[in-house]
Amino acid sequence: MGTVVAPACFSTPMMMMGFFKSKPRTRTPVELIHHLRHLLPYTTPNPALPKTKRSYHKICEVGKVIVEIRRVLYGDDRLEPSEEACVKLAQEFFKQDTCHMLIAFLPNFDPGTRQDVTHVIANLHRQRVNGQYLASQYLERNTPLLAMLLPGCDNSELALSYGAILRECIRHQVAAKYILESDHFKIFFKYIQDPSFDIASDATATFRDLLTRHKSTVAEFLSKNYDWFFLEYNSLLESPNYISRRNAIMLLGAMLLDRSNVSVMVRYVCSLDNMRILMNLLRDSNKTIQLEAFHVFKLFPANQRKPQEIVNVLIANRVKLIRFFSDFTFEKADEQFESDKAQVVKEIAALELKVQPCSALKQCKQIAC
């Protein structure tokens, strides 16, 4: 009987050991966070030197760890996420300053890793432990983190990541309140008119969340900051940029028509300057802006305590306004729109003129449609 020769692939004990090598041990949630914290400082290259192989290797390793963390939080094709693992991961992530570190080192990563980081942070901000959001408690102790995120919204390369993370933070009332009450909020009036479409659109999404998500906080903010806020906001409504005007009028309607902002709405519709802006928007060349402007304009004639100067202007423009609304229609106009339009016409037609000084008459003519 001839000697049996082993296949070439099993010709040495070393190669056989390699064939039967066990898979690497899966890290626990706590180990993943500790490993991530260890790696992050090494991802920053020395600015005086070209990017080294060591820093490149560390950045790649961070990317792998982030993917592993994402798999724990979201699961994969084979396994559903474990609630216990997600809780442990969230507890360890918010225990120290891992969130702050991860955001600080975000510019060092490639776009794909930044996107994974965004998904990981989004999930962790929504994790509840014993009915409470750990992220909310963390942000209450670390509000400077929010100030660190805001400048990133002005970077065309990073705006999408920073903006998405900031909106996740804003889900928590403590974060939204901090931004609204800080000087940082005013910078959004600049960002939403940025020439870069990515920066402007992302800032607009964050701006809208800040002013609509937490009703009581927004109502308090608008009441306390009415004068300067609407002075800035009206400049958006009169912006030469079509997108800025459209976004501004849509958000204005959402704010004023919200029940929590009734007192702010009443104050807004008692201003002749505000009505003048809305009357101009009714004549905008864009149909969407016209329709959104109508939903706000209808509040002025519907106000049962209209200042006399507003009554006088509506009367001075009565014929033109009624003629305008008779032709004011849209392809997808519904019964509610037609009903609202009829009510506006009825309110304007029923107005009575009172004796007024010559200066007021002059003003009426200047605002005429």
Rank of each mutant, 00 (worst) to 15 (best):
F185W: 10
D194Y: 01
L210E: 03
V218E: 04
P144W: 08
G163S: 04
L222C: 11
M148T: 12
D194A: 05
K224E: 15
Y226T: 05
D194M: 04
R213L: 15
K215H: 14
T206E: 06
V174W: 04
Y178C: 06
S182I: 13
L222H: 08
D227Q: 14
A175F: 09
H172Y: 13
N142S: 11
L166M: 12
A147E: 15
R208G: 01
I192F: 03
F188Q: 10
L222T: 07
L160F: 06
L146N: 07
H172Q: 11
F207T: 00
V174Q: 10
A176P: 02
S161T: 13
S182A: 14
E157T: 13
R171S: 03
H184S: 14
P144G: 13
L166E: 04
H214K: 12
D227S: 15
L180P: 00
I170M: 02
K190F: 04
Y162N: 02
P151S: 10
S216R: 12
L146H: 09
T217S: 13
E181I: 00
S216I: 10
R213Q: 11
D154T: 08
K186C: 08
A147W: 10
S156P: 02
L211P: 03
L211Q: 01
D227Y: 12
L146E: 11
L160E: 05
K177C: 12
A205N: 11
E168W: 01
A205W: 01
A147D: 15
R167N: 11
Y226F: 15
H214R: 14
Y162W: 02
I187N: 14
G163V: 06
D194L: 04
N155H: 09
F185P: 10
S223K: 14
N142K: 13
N155G: 06
G163N: 07
T204F: 09
A164I: 02
T204R: 10
L180C: 09
C153H: 00
N155T: 05
C169N: 01
F189H: 07
D198H: 02
L149A: 01
T206C: 11
H172A: 07
S223C: 09
K190A: 03
A147S: 15
L222D: 12
